[in-house]
């Protein structure tokens, strides 16, 4: 409340819900960070508990997780370029960058689903060991976030196509790009802690 009063003199919220929405969204991202911290803690403790089954070194495929990483990193970059197109009011460029971001994100999810399917076909199911339970929970939770982001992106593209760039869609794309960058930030730690430390 103080934030809005200090920032807008109690007037601008009728036209632009930007600042207070942005703050609320940051608070969501921070609490989401704590969710991931909790399941990272589980993984950090349980990753050696393989119950005699296959461990990270045998299960993880370097080319696949490296490709996933580059796909998501590039999509984070292209969602930033979408933000720039938005600021310049270029609707076509904004839609193009969102489509590219969505294709890269879909590629990431496609690879992750096939990776999970291969693991399960290998007998490495979520109930096989504590290591695999924490692995599927951590990486799967991130995958669910990305899937939700893809759905959000599609609804944004439809809205922008129909209504163009206005204060409302500008605000929504701004929040979406924060969300998408945040998911890449979480993935950096999954890539580092789960995959790189897993295969080293």
């Amino acid at each position: 409340m103080e934030y809005r009063l200090a920032s807008s003199k109690g007037h601008a919220e009728h036209h632009n819900p930007g600042p207070i929405n942005q703050l609320g969204f940051w608070l969501f991202l921070i609490s989401d960070c704590l969710l991931f911290a909790s399941i990272f803690a589980c993984y950090a403790i349980l990753n050696t508990h393989t119950d005699g089954g296959q461990g990270a070194k045998e299960l993880f495929d370097v080319p696949i997780f490296v490709t996933e990483t580059f796909l998501l990193l590039t999509s984070s970059f292209t969602s930033g370029l979408a933000m720039l197109a938005l600021q310049k009011g270029k609707k076509a460029a904004l839609l193009n960058w969102l489509v590219i971001t969505a294709i890269l994100g879909a590629g990431f999810i496609g690879l992750e689903v096939s990776e999970f399917a291969n693991l399960v076909a290998d007998g490495a199911t979520i109930s096989r060991s504590a290591f695999l339970t924490s692995f599927f929970t951590l990486v799967g939770t991130h995958g669910c976030h990305v899937t939700f982001g893809l759905i959000w992106m599609i609804t944004l593209m439809v809205q922008i196509k129909k209504r163009g760039i206005n204060a409302k869609t500008t605000n929504k794309v701004g929040l979406f790009s924060l969300y998408w960058h945040f998911l890449d930030a979480i993935w950096i730690f999954i890539f580092s802690v789960v995959y790189l430390m897993g295969v080293m």
């Binding site: 807008s8 007037h11 601008a12 919220e13 009728h14 036209h15 632009n16 930007g18 942005q22 990483t69 580059f70 990193l73 590039t74 984070s76 970059f77 930033g80 370029l81 933000m83 720039l84 938005l86 600021q87 310049k88 009011g89 760039i165 206005n166 204060a167 500008t170 605000n171 701004g174 790009s177 950096i188 890539f191």
Partner: peptide, 28 residues
């Protein structure tokens, strides 16, 4: 400022995003 949607995220620039992307690639 309420009438100008572009002010919501006025600080980004192409250079900043390209720099960030290249640094991220190297750090990966």
């Amino acid at each position: 400022h309420g009438h100008d949607p572009a002010r919501v995220h006025a600080h980004g620039s192409t250079g900043q995003y390209v720099t960030g992307y290249l640094i991220s690639l190297v750090l990966t």
